[in-house]
Write a protein that binds this DNA or RNA. Structure first.
Lengths: 188, 188
DNA sequence: AAATCATTTCGATAAGTATCGAAATGATTG
DNA sequence: CAATCATTTCGATACTTATCGAAATGATTT
């Protein structure tokens, strides 16, 4: 997950420099030695060496010895790979390491007291939904509850149990049977 | 020339950061508000704003107002463009700002295919010479080649190896020893 | 082995930038 | 218009890195 992303970041960093892009463009024509590249770009040999190191680190260039020189060439294979990189599936997987419950946790932290009860019931819909997801955890799947039992559980969180109860049903986190007033938790 | 490269550098810089990549991955799933992104990534709102600014600067994300929030979405068009970015021709043009061999580069871009082979052998003398300078790079200085070896190397570029071979000798880029038919690369 | 030439490594410096907190701005609701 | 909430801007800090010069390493020739 994360290591794969690091590799991607390194790849883009390798291309995120004007002089390295020029090197790639030059090597796309034909191989060059480091000395030639330095002359063409107006840079010192040590600087070019640094750039080539970053490029070869991600497999974009490779070197072969030739006389005094090392001759560097572009690895078009690495670029081919890049073309395939931007499929929707691969893009989505870039976010793999992300903690998707982060938003809920932040809202819960903002609206709850140390004992877990609610300081207030959020007015904004998105935050209310996060809080309702938090509250509904205290109900067990499969169980059926009377309205009185529901209110008792909800009262741990806030005195306005009616609002919470209506919210849970409205958010389709719980359901109610029309007549008898029995409630149960809905699964995702 | 250079402005175009700057744009490219900015584009890669926009993607050369782990958190921005995650944002791209998340927005590839569906739009998010800045607040949600901040919670998901464990960053402060101001930091996320900075990242979104860099991403929208290169057209990768766009925003639309929705209630209190601004909702950001990925511009898949910008990514499509990226796929086309790595054609041989465009790669070669990345080195346009480099002040040497500009003419040769243009000719090479015009006459070569993505794999580096020749679409055709130029008829005009100046263009032919530029192409010959390009071709001769694949010969190593000091080496001696039989005609068969020469033809094998030249066949990477064009099936008419005889024309290329005669051109190289005529342009004094390579020399041939009269009797035995051995060839070698001439230095500038 | 000594000399020569290119490349790499190292240390230093300057520029860039990711991140935060605080303040300013913008947008929406009451 | 006042209150509320999200976003942006600003100033500061810490980390990264592009660049250079000098020294070390590697490779080739004599």
């Amino acid at each position: 997950m994360s290591e794969k992303n690091d590799e991607l970041v390194l790849f883009f960093k390798a291309l995120a420099d004007a002089n390295r892009l020029k090197i790639v463009g030059l090597l796309a024509q034909h191989p060059y030695s480091g000395e030639e590249l330095a002359a063409l770009l107006g840079l010192k040999a040590s600087t070019v060496s640094h750039h080539l190191s970053r490029l070869s680190q991600v497999g974009l260039v490779s070197a072969r010895a030739e006389g005094y020189y090392s001759v560097y060439r572009l690895e078009e294979l690495a670029l081919q790979k890049t073309r395939l990189l931007f499929s929707h599936k691969d893009l989505v997987s870039v976010a793999d390491g992300v903690d998707v419950d982060g938003y809920d946790r932040k809202v819960i932290a903002d609206f709850t007291r140390p004992d877990g009860s609610l300081k207030e019931i959020p007015a904004q819909r998105k935050k209310l939904e996060a809080i309702l997801r938090y509250v509904v955890r205290d109900f067990e799947p499969g169980n059926r509850y009377t309205e009185k039992q529901v209110n008792k559980i909800l009262s741990r969180f806030h005195e306005d149990t009616a609002s919470l109860r209506r919210g849970l049903v409205g958010a389709k986190l719980m359901a109610r049977e029309g007549g008898g007033g029995e409630y149960w938790k809905l699964e995702d």
